[in-house]
């Protein structure tokens, strides 16, 4: 399109500085000794102490948190993706009565509106009964539940993009229903699977409110670990900075890989 006016250039430059600035500042502070942070110096001798402390000190549970997060985020993503994709396909493809499909979709919408924190209480009680309180399994189940609506919407949008004739061609070509789904439709919606997978993973990796309340020391995830640095009686600022950086890296890596798919998914979802 046209060229940017001076005002637009300043606006854009300012926004970019506001977005990137905090990252750089935190990154800088994560390489400082605590004392340099307190003095607010801009010129200092970089050190990895904070990172060593966060990752390897005996007091720190952070490596454990990282492992828990990897397990919870991966498994909940795989499960949500599997269940969500199957459910979306079934709703999209087969003639369910309005009561079934409408009911499910309405419930997804309602559920999506409910603040998660309101459900943590009941989950807590249910998991205590089932012996799932303070287990990774319990946490995975909640993350699956939270991620299902988004997965189902996104996949339904992608399935709607698959020409109906392609599936019919598969049927005429000799596919059973399951084969038409697995051999023809699924490969075509791989971008959707990636988009939904990335969003699920990032969400689960970042999720705090549920993990805070349904886990304890051994099962805590990264966000709970990060919060811990800020909550202890003596706030460890340099570790807080280092932990924030470490916690952010996986999501950013995954997003770099999946960005264009996610953008496409959001477009499909919002343009309709």
């Amino acid at each position: 399109m046209g060229r940017l006016s001076l005002f637009q250039r300043i606006f854009l430059a300012g926004t970019l500085a506001m977005v990137v600035g905090p990252f750089l500042w935190i990154l800088m502070n994560s390489f400082k000794y605590q004392i340099d942070i307190y003095q607010g110096t801009w010129i200092f001798e970089p050190t990895l102490t904070s990172y060593m402390d966060v990752l390897f000190s005996r007091r720190s549970q952070f490596t454990n948190n990282l492992w828990n997060s990897v397990v919870v985020a991966s498994i909940s993503t795989i499960v949500a993706l599997t269940l969500g994709t199957l459910c979306a396909y079934s709703l999209h493809r087969f003639r369910w009565s309005k009561w079934v499909s409408g009911g499910i979709l309405a419930w997804l919408l309602l559920f999506h509106m409910i603040p998660v924190i309101t459900l943590v209480g009941p989950w807590y009680l249910i998991f205590r009964h089932l012996g799932l309180y303070d287990t990774l399994t319990g946490l995975v189940l909640t993350h699956v539940t939270i991620n299902l609506p988004m997965t189902i919407w996104l996949m339904m949008a992608f399935f709607a993009e698959v020409p109906k004739e392609m599936e019919e061609a598969a049927q005429v070509d000799g596919c059973t229903r399951v084969q038409a789904f697995t051999l023809v439709v699924l490969p075509v919606v791989v971008p959707g699977l990636i988009a939904a997978g990335v969003l699920s993973f990032v969400f689960s990796w970042n999720e705090f409110a549920i993990a805070l309340n349904l886990t304890s020391r051994a099962t805590a995830t990264v966000p709970v670990g990060v919060a811990k640095f800020a909550q202890d009686f003596e706030i460890q600022h340099s570790q807080m900075a280092a932990a924030s950086i470490v916690a952010t890296i996986p999501a950013i890596l995954i997003m770099f890989f999946g960005q264009r798919f996610v953008v496409r998914g959001l477009t499909l979802g919002s343009v309709k």
Partner: peptide, 27 residues
């Protein structure tokens, strides 16, 4: 449809975009 031993050519062709021409042909 798969049990009727028919072949169909669609208006939009409905080729399988993730398969090469050969795989489309011998699917």
């Amino acid at each position: 449809p798969r049990e009727r031993d028919i072949a169909m050519v669609f208006q939009s062709y409905a080729l399988y975009p993730h398969m090469r021409v050969e795989a489309n042909l011998d699917f």
